[in-house]
Nucleic acid binder design. Structure first.
Length: 521
RNA sequence: GGCCCCGUCGUCUAGCGGUUCAGGACAUCUGGUUUUCAUCCAGAAGAUCGCGGGUUCGAAUCCCGCCGGGGUCACCA
């Protein structure tokens, strides 16, 4: 079917152009990013353009500043459009609210050609009709009341300034056949397709008219959108026919759902981009992860770069199944990405993350849940900033394999930024394996070594070796000789590598903690 | 409810009529490395391919029916 006239078409093969049409609602949905990602790979792979078009035809839903949220999110993921309101391009304007005259022109053209008609029905009448149809067990549809108004009647109402919309005329008793790239041919009974409103009474178009007009005028060759549009696909197909325009390729992608199969709702944190950003996920990891939803690498690779994605991606391999979002796997993947970072990169991204969390409020529908307090972000940031360069790098080094997302940094690294109480609980923890006397003697021994140390990492590692050897001497298990030291230094039975931690903490603080612990024993 | 889409381990998926009594990844469990926590390594368990009929020498792969899930039925996108 696709190469029937490929010979004639060869000379005018169109450049691939994809488009993302978010409506600015005030927060960025993961699904929007999923769409953007596919738009972007496909355009990039084919040397085409990825267009951003703001679909703001619903003035009732206008939210101040919402557009910036979209730009910020696309930026974070590096899914930068080639064209759009702030990116420029030759097919502008890229906000639908700035293209009203265009939609008006085509809507009127359709009316003139008898493919659409004015409708003067009131909201009340429409509601009534709908209610009655439902009572009769029929599918609620417009009853085509105004479709058969005479020209004179229409003109009279128009002259009288009656409020009106424009509806498209859907043919009767026809089969509308549409083609979806991944699902193939889909047939619809035209009698079940509503005479959709294409121009609202406020002079704004509905989505249906706007997309068709814009996609055509902007030379879009691949319409990539969510599966929720399949049902209105025949309306769009009709509009293309009515306008005499060639159809782009339509691709209805899968949609990402929750683990229970319900859809990602705005109320849930993990639906919004900002949630991932504040949790401390890496955008590349999130992208890699969602790329694997509804699609798989031809060699079944799990982790790959954007460039590799571009190389091997093919729209045709997209699945028609709606995947569930498994955050556990995302965590694993993010951890993998963390480990590939150099220490410098890790620190760089960590700074950016901390700065972002300090400077910005959460952009999402619900409260953001975290075990970090606002002060924590500031404390970690300040502590890190005042640290010597070699200590910073070591901090990155020891944390990379231990952290899946930046939020995991606490409580593991509490010892660096917080003081703990030397109370009964602490003593109890310290004496878990040996009694007070034994531990005291042990800690005095190492405290002495530490006090005489220059606290270079090399020397500390040397002391670590001595501790290990001491296990044999005193007949303790290796774990038992390190345990009380760890509790003394970290106030906890878990910590990053002990002697590296001491190095980062610095001699003064370490000695202070030993003194306090010994005093209490 | 009508119409449309979808249905392989708990999850993401490979598979596109025959070296597949179904392969990989996450999660789970076990063992190893390790001074804690992680990382890393090895291994185990886990799917009668939604169900029932066909077609075929042979079906997860093709056809039909059923069931289940989802989407959609707005002057929202």
């Amino acid at each position: 079917m696709k190469n029937s006239n490929s010979v004639q078409n060869k000379s005018k093969i169109k450049k691939v152009r994809t488009r993302l049409g978010p409506s600015p609602t005030g927060f960025a949905h993961l699904g929007t990013i999923y769409q953007a990602m596919i738009d972007k790979v496909w355009a990039e792979k084919n040397g085409g353009q990825f267009v951003l078009r703001i679909e703001d035809t619903d003035i009732k839903r206008f939210v101040e500043g919402a557009e910036n949220v979209i730009y910020d999110s696309l930026n974070w993921f590096k899914l930068i459009p080639d064209e759009g309101p702030i990116y420029g391009g030759e097919y502008g304007p890229y906000r639908q609210s700035e293209r009203l005259n265009l939609y008006k022109k085509y809507a009127e053209k359709l009316v003139k050609e008898d493919k659409a008609y004015y409708c003067f029905c009131s909201k009340e009448r429409l509601d009534e009709v709908r209610k009655q149809q439902q009572n009769e067990g029929k599918q609620p549809m417009y009853d085509k009341h105004c479709r058969h108004l005479s020209k004179e009647e229409v003109q009279k109402k128009l002259d009288a300034g009656e409020s009106h919309v424009i509806r498209m005329k859907v043919p009767e008793n026809e089969t509308i056949i549409v083609e979806d790239l991944i699902r193939g041919t889909i047939e619809f009974d035209s009698n079940l397709v509503d005479d959709q409103v294409i121009m609202k009474s406020d002079g704004f178009p509905t989505y249906h008219l706007a997309v068709v007009v814009d996609d055509h005028l902007m030379n879009i060759t691949y319409v990539i959108r969510g599966p929720e549009w399949i049902t209105s696909f025949p309306k769009h197909k009709l509009l293309y026919d009515y306008l005499g325009w060639e159809m782009p390729v339509f691709v209805h992608t899968p949609i990402i759902n929750n683990m229970d199969g319900s859809k990602l709702s705005k109320r849930q944190g993990h639906a919004s981009v900002d949630w991932y950003r504040r949790k401390g996920y890496l955008p590349e990891a999130v992208l890699n992860f969602i790329a694997l939803l509804g699609w798989s690498h031809p060699e079944e690779k799990e982790i790959f770069s954007w460039q590799e994605y571009v190389n091997v991606f093919d729209l045709k391999n997209l699945s028609a199944v709606n995947p569930k979002l498994d955050l556990k796997k995302l965590d694993w993947m993010n951890g993998q990405y963390m480990q590939t970072l150099t220490n410098e990169q890790f620190l760089d991204k960590l700074y950016n993350w901390l700065t972002y969390c300090i400077d910005n409020e959460y952009v999402g529908a619900t409260e953001y849940e975290t075990h970090w307090t606002k002060q924590d972000y500031i404390d970690v940031f300040n502590w890190l900033r005042n640290l010597d360069e070699d200590k910073k790098l070591l901090f990155a080094e020891i944390n990379k394999p231990r952290v899946k997302i930046f939020e995991d940094l606490l409580p593991l690294n509490n010892l660096f930024i917080k003081n703990f109480n030397i109370d009964e609980e602490f003593i109890e923890l310290l004496n878990k394996y040996k009694n007070s006397e034994e531990n005291k003697e042990h800690l005095e021994w190492i405290a002495d070594l530490l006090k005489n140390s220059d606290f270079s990492l090399a020397h500390l590692k040397n002391i670590e070796l001595q501790v290990k050897n001491r296990a044999d001497e005193v007949g303790w298990k290796i774990m038992e000789v390190f345990y009380p030291i760890r509790v003394t230094v970290a106030g906890s039975k878990v910590s990053p590598p002990l002697f590296e931690s001491m190095f980062i903490l610095g001699k003064e603080k370490v000695i202070e903690r030993f003194d306090k612990a010994l005093e209490a024993l």
